[in-house]
């Protein structure tokens, strides 16, 4: 039985609230992954990232990932939050987290959540450098 499943696309991620959202009396393990903006890509200084989402499809794809993970690892609570808009260096851009009775399940679930999100969820990231912008992964 899943206590909580939070699937959101938001303007700003508040990482300080994630623990409370995943904590429950059945869970001895809570695992969270936060993706953030890194300052350099291949030695080039990144000024900011811009995220765009096809929101209704992204939420559906995120929900599919969540349902799969809850079933596979018997999770008690789960969160997937992705930010959109302009983000500066160090800003959190994605949070995935899971809680389970023991730690193995939530560790493995977090890995699955972020890896699958990156493969299937229709969200796009543009790197803004000093002199150019690049849509990440667009070209081989």
């Amino acid at each position: 039985m899943v206590d909580k499943k939070i699937i959101e696309i938001v303007d700003v991620i508040d990482t300080s609230k994630v623990f409370a959202k995943l904590s429950d009396s059945q869970s001895g393990g809570i695992c969270v992954f936060v993706g953030a903006v890194r300052e350099f890509t291949k030695n080039e200084k990144v000024m900011s990232l811009e995220f765009e989402a096809y929101e209704q499809m992204a939420l559906r794809e995120m929900d599919k990932i969540a349902i799969n993970a809850i079933e596979k690892w018997q999770l008690n609570s789960l969160i997937i939050q992705h930010a959109v808009g302009f983000k500066k260096v160090e800003d959190p851009v994605v949070v995935v987290g899971a809680s389970s009775a023991h730690r193995d399940a939530c560790f493995e679930a977090c890995r699955y959540l972020i890896d699958t999100l990156k493969e299937t969820v229709p969200i796009w990231k543009k790197e803004v450098f000093e002199n150019k912008t690049v849509w990440v992964s667009a070209h081989p």
């Binding site: 493969e119 969820v121 969200i123 796009w124 990231k125 849509w135 667009a138």
Partner: peptide, 10 residues
């Protein structure tokens, strides 16, 4: 209908 170019979230 939507065109979905290579995704790059996360």
């Amino acid at each position: 209908i939507a065109i979905i170019p290579p995704v790059s979230g996360g």
